[in-house]
Amino acid sequence: MFRNCPDPIQLSAYLDGELSERRWLKIGLHLQKCSACRDKLAELEQVKKLVAQLPHRPAPEIRITAQQSPPKAAGKRWLWASCLTAAAVLLLVFFVHLRQPQADDVAGEYLRIHRQYEQQLAESIELLEEVEAQ
């Protein structure tokens, strides 16, 4: 190979038609005048053909039993039950909190607590979705 010869990685991509049109044309022109690159290309092509000629063997039967099938409905029921339980607990805590004597600026405090519980609920749901996704 000569100094102006393309990188052999590019020759391999040329063989697969995986180059831009411009580069493909450029290498094609080079190949017309460079026997070393033509030889390299022929070697790569021969190897490619040998691998392509490997027979495709018949596959085994895939056996998936009822026990192995995903427990989709159960999974969703579990998620909903967990979310509802979490929501119920948070609401209970919130109302218990409401019934307790509050300091000044009661409305602002209630709003802060409500937001905090909303955030905790959202985090719980997100966590449960992650667990189910795994």
Binding site: P8, I9, L11, S12, A13, E18, E43, L44, V47
Partner: peptide
């Protein structure tokens, strides 16, 4: 992908 394919083919050629 490009480089692994080239080096893989080249290695196969040498082994064969």
């Amino acid at each position: 992908v490009k480089s692994r394919l080239f080096y893989g083919r080249e290695a196969l050629r040498k082994i064969l």
